[in-house]
Design a protein around this nucleic acid. Structure first.
Length: 576
RNA sequence: GCACCCGUAGCUCAGCUGGAUAGAGCACCUGACUUCGAAUCAGGGGGUCACAGGUUCGAAUCCUGUCGGGUGUACCA
């Protein structure tokens, strides 16, 4: 139940009547007609731009259209008035009963209030994290993980058929480096002194892998050449690292549906098949790229290689898919991977990248566009950097200084709920400040707390009501008239509309901001009770009145819970 | 050089497929607890939406250019 789309339907039906009686011409596109909450409450309950967007195509004065529309709308039982304002806005005033009808609906739907159908029948794949399997997740991955997961939940709530997916980069040179690093730890476990050179990973997290290997092989691998152990250690180490990453993700409550291995694309013909598809479309050729303008790399030299004509699908330059020695670039398996997603029948693909990978957006979009004959859309969301602060001081991360902050560090310090909510209080493409002190503060500066507190306060009221044997489930409302009550109810009614917009734009942060606003409206209403005792939720000598108010706050609580669940944050009943 | 992201109040940021007088929090000032949790609320001051053009009934929002900041820039993943 979406009050705004209901009224929009009423507007559209009225417009059709105006067409059939000749007031408006037959051929009109109504898709731009909106019904939205007005910025200023004094403008009424809802406003529509119908007259203005139709004025030009209909060749009519917007006020004439608005007047005619107004006459029809006021006939509807939900509408009190429809006044033309400004350049042609139609401001609607709606009956009190209509607004309050949302309350029993919410109580009936519970935390499913707001579920939408805009995604029904649409298969969407959300790929996120996809960190190299060479170590634990760090704080940078955390934002992508939280964002991707919340987006997936948001789309699920909007009715999409969602698959959460992680692409394991286990096919490249960095996995060899990992294997060598583990070998060094193995030597160490056998009592040798080792040095981490050539970019090998010195992190402690590999120590136990070295011990495991010693337990398994004793010292039998110590003097063996690399060729004898590298393949096995690669496999062993990446599996261990993926276990580590899975457990890191679990700390945030994240579970992937699919882990897709890059390695599985090699030697199986999948890369060749994807490239054959592009080749069949005339998009693969042998060529030499121009040197980049501006500062030229010192070692630049013209090389002939296999190129993908990505410029035909919106890229700036064509991109290499094979190196000059004939081996694949990283881009080739990426193409194959996305080809696989297309073949699995997804209608929409979404990739979450760190902002430092922004340079790959166009080529990936070009590849998907080409591979799917422009049938499958690829939206790439970039998550910006997280700047860490401790007590207001910027906190510099350094692997060498040992001040490298992992996902586990963050979650163990502040908890999964705080981590998730804070990461979602910014648009994904805006940098985020994360202050360890501030995010744990219990005040309204901290949106996590503020929203949780509203939920907890309602739990407190409801348990008091239960002690007093108050009923909370009613269908009709007579007492909810105070402006602060109306504000809360209207905010509740906006939830389904907001959810659809957030899903349409792939922007889960809108849910976080909405919850903050809803919590704020609720806190305001709570405090009004001091000046206006008739708005207090528990009216001890008036059970009927109490039931109406308790129904309202219960609906608020359910809506907050629904929103928090999408964000992956647990609603709590008591602050500690 | 080129591409992408960003530029909104002193600070941190929202701003709906283009809508009416641009919002919130922090900070600053003034008020509200014999209470269903004051961990909260009410009120006040504070903005040339970086700048200049354009599109139109209407632009913070779309287009072009300029300035400023971030990121990425050939066979690395």
């Amino acid at each position: 139940m979406n009050l705004f789309s209901d009224i929009r339907n009423l507007v559209l039906a009225s417009l059709e009547i105006l067409q059939s009686n000749g007031t408006l011409p037959k051929e009109l596109n109504f898709s731009n007609v909106t019904v939205e909450p007005p910025r200023d409450a004094s403008h009424g309950d809802m406003s529509t731009n119908a007259a203005m967007v139709l004025a030009k195509p209909a060749g009519m004065n917007p006020r004439l259209i608005a007047d005619a529309l107004s006459l029809l709308l006021v006939n509807d039982e939900r509408v009190i008035s429809a006044d033309v304002a400004g350049p042609g806005f139609l401001n609607l005033c709606l009956k009190q009963d209509y607004w309050t009808s949302i309350i029993p609906f919410v109580l009936n739907m519970g935390t499913n209030y707001g579920r939408a159908t805009i995604g029904t029948g649409i298969k969407v794949n959300v790929e996120y994290v996809s960190a190299n399997p060479t170590g634990p997740l760090h704080v940078g991955h955390t934002r992508g993980a939280v964002f991707g997961d919340a987006l997936a939940s948001l789309l699920d709530f909007a009715g999409f058929d969602v698959t959460r997916e992680y692409y394991i980069n286990d096919g490249g040179a960095q996995v060899d480096v990992l294997a060598r690093s583990v070998y060094l730890r193995y030597l160490e476990a056998n009592g040798q002194a080792v040095e981490f050179v050539d970019g090998t990973y010195p992190g402690d997290y590999l120590v136990e892998l070295g011990v495991d290997l010693k337990n398994k092989y004793g010292d039998s691998l110590v003097d063996k050449p690399e060729t004898e152990w590298i393949a096995e250690l690669r496999l062993f180490a990446t599996e261990k690292m993926m276990d580590l990453i899975r457990s890191d993700l679990a700390l945030l409550g994240i579970r992937m549906d699919v882990f897709f291995s890059e390695k599985s694309l090699y030697g199986t013909g999948l890369i060749e098949a994807a490239l054959a598809d592009l080749d069949g479309k005339g998009l693969v050729y042998q060529g030499v790229l121009e040197p980049p303008k501006g500062k030229k790399p010192d070692d630049w030299e013209p090389r002939e290689q296999t190129l993908f004509k990505s410029t035909e699908h919106g890229d700036d330059v064509d991109r290499p898919i094979a190196k000059s020695d004939g081996s694949w670039t990283y881009f080739a398996p990426d193409i194959a991977y996305h080809f696989d997603k297309v073949q699995r029948g997804f209608d929409q693909l979404i990739d979450i990248f760190g902002a430092d990978h922004g340079g790959y957006v166009k080529r990936m979009k070009a590849a998907v566009s080409a591979l799917s004959n422009q049938q499958v859309s690829l939206d790439i969301k970039l998550t910006q950097l997280v700047k860490l602060y401790k007590n207001g001081e910027p906190f510099k991360m350094s692997k060498r200084a040992g001040t490298f902050v992992t996902l586990r560090d963050v979650v163990e310090q502040v908890g999964p709920d705080v981590t998730r909510f804070v990461m979602l209080t910014r648009k994904n493409d805006a940098p985020l400040d994360f202050d360890f002190a501030k995010v744990q503060e219990q005040s309204k500066d901290n949106p996590v707390f503020y929203v949780q507190y509203a939920h907890a306060r309602i739990s407190s009221v409801l348990s008091k009501a239960k002690d007093a044997n108050m009923k909370i489930d009613v269908k009709t409302f007579k007492s909810l008239k105070h402006p602060s009550e109306i504000t809360v109810i209207k905010k509740l009614a906006e939830w389904p509309r907001l959810l659809e917009l957030a899903a349409k734009h792939n922007e889960p942060h809108r849910v976080a901001f909405y919850l903050y606003e809803l919590a704020g409206d609720f806190h305001a209403l709570w405090n009004i009770g001091k000046e206006a005792p008739e708005t207090r939720f528990l009216q001890e000598d008036n059970p009927e009145l109490s039931a109406e108010k308790l129904s309202m706050v219960s609906a608020v609580q359910l809506t907050i819970a629904a929103g928090l669940t999408i964000l992956g944050v647990a609603p709590i009943d008591e602050m500690r």
